[in-house]
Structure formats: structure tokens, C-alpha cells
Nucleic acid binder design. Sequence first.
DNA 1: TTCTGTGCAAATCTTTTGCATGGCA
DNA 2: TGCCATGCAAAAGATTTGCACAGAA
Lengths: 132, 132
Amino acid sequence: MKQLKSLLEESTLKITPQRLAILKELGKKGHASIEEIYENIIEFFPSISLATIYKNITALKDENIISEICIHEKPKFEITKEPHAHFICKKCGKVEDVPLSDLIKEEIEKQYPDSKKELYIYGICKACKDNE
Amino acid sequence: MKQLKSLLEESTLKITPQRLAILKELGKKGHASIEEIYENIIEFFPSISLATIYKNITALKDENIISEICIHEKPKFEITKEPHAHFICKKCGKVEDVPLSDLIKEEIEKQYPDSKKELYIYGICKACKDNE
DNA sequence: TTCTGTGCAAATCTTTTGCATGGCA
DNA sequence: TGCCATGCAAAAGATTTGCACAGAA
């Protein structure tokens, strides 16, 4: 919680309860869509507006405090951290962070030097595979 | 053009000028969003409706004739082909197909066996880098 | 006190749906 | 001819904007 506050302190954005609530939600869930953020926050913060969530998501992205990740359904957001890959289950939509092997990192760095990369691996997660 | 027709023939979908136009557009552009498809088609097919594009994109996806690819802006679509990665320029939005090295394929197969994967590499393309 | 952030309501944009008509097989 | 596909208009959903007020620094 204290770290979340410092994310804002290091930016040009002011610290507000709404922003802390959004960051807290993302910290807890790992990845969440606008809708998920809103629905979870409104329970303990009933006066918050959807427009505020949208505005702040944009502001936090611009400051690189959060990142947008890309799944086939809704865009989701996460607190910006070390580059890593995402595994996204095509059935249940669950998102997991994937530690990339050094091999892959090198290989891709070789093909696309000097540029940031993001990797997404779409598949069926264990839980969904077992249910088939 | 003849191949596009056969894509439909092999499916349960009927052959219509609208569907052929959509496939032709995707074949020509490689990747295009709903909006791009609509704007390009309407020039030589003024009576086509946006709703028809939406309905057909859904139908073509369901038949696996086209695939949705995932970029941070709008979803784009392409004619389904061999598994490959996409390089997406974060500045200009250009999408390029990336032939994955066997090394990477093996590596990822090892980590996530028996599941389909899609890889996206976000970076800055050469043209944009030169303009910096 | 100043200026940014919030919340409401309205506007805008995107996507979906229902239905009558048209057109492929 | 029988159905599926189309196109229109309306509905539904998602996102953005303007503005007055509230609250952080």
C-alpha cells in the first residue's frame, strides 16, 4: 500500500483516494479490466464514477505507472514491472505472468534489437484442459 | 481471388459479394480493422452496411477463415494461415508477420505443451526509429 | 489559495439486434 | 423455392467530454 502511494509521488499526478483505490485493486488482482476495477472499487467507494476510472487509467498509463495488456476480449491493466510475457487462457480468460527463458529473450533481442517487446502466449490453461 | 472463393466453399457459409470483398481486402492489406475494411470496401461497394461487416467478421472468425489479432489499439483481422508471430509498431501501428525461429517455437512448446500459442512482439519499427 | 481531480450528465463512438427484403444454391 | 444473408434503423454498450464543485498541495 505504501509502495502504491510512492508510485504517484514520483509522478506528476496528485495522490487521491480514487487513484490509490485503482492501484490497490490492480496490485491485488494482478490484471483487471476497467469494468472489473469499477465493480470492485464501488463496493467500498460507492461515490466513484466510471468516468473517473477511465480518466485515471489514461493518466496512469501516460505516466507509465500502469501498463495495458492485450487480450482478445477486453484490454486489461497491470502495474508496470519488469518485462515479462503473459499467458492468457483462451477459455476462461485467466492471465498469468510468464517468466521468459533467457534463451527466448536473446533470440528475440537478436531479431529485434533496441526495441521493447511484449510477448503473449495464448493457450488453454491446466484447469480448463482438465475440464475438457 | 479464386482462392478466396474456395475458402468460403469449404465452409458452411454462402458465397456473397460482401464476403468476397471482405476477404479480398484482408488479402490485399494483410491486416485490417473493421473500420479500415469498411472504409475501403464502401468505395467500390457503396451499399454495404457496417452491420454486415460486423456480422461477417464474426461468421468468418467462427469458421476459422480469418483470425483476430490483438494490438493495443483496435483489434485487427487477417486471413488464417500458418502460426506465426506479429511485430506491431507502437508508434505507427504497422503490423508485420514475423517468422519465428525454430528455437523459439521449441522453447515455448516446452513451457506450454499441447496448447496453441500466439506471439506478439511490440516495438518500434525501422521507419519510426529513423524518424526519432 | 490555486489548480488539479472528481462526479454527473450529455455526447460520441462502437457494436449488436430485429426485422423485412433480397439473393444464393 | 427455401433459407441464409443483407441493410436499415434502433438499441445497447463503451468511452469521452464539459462543466461546476471538491479537495490535494
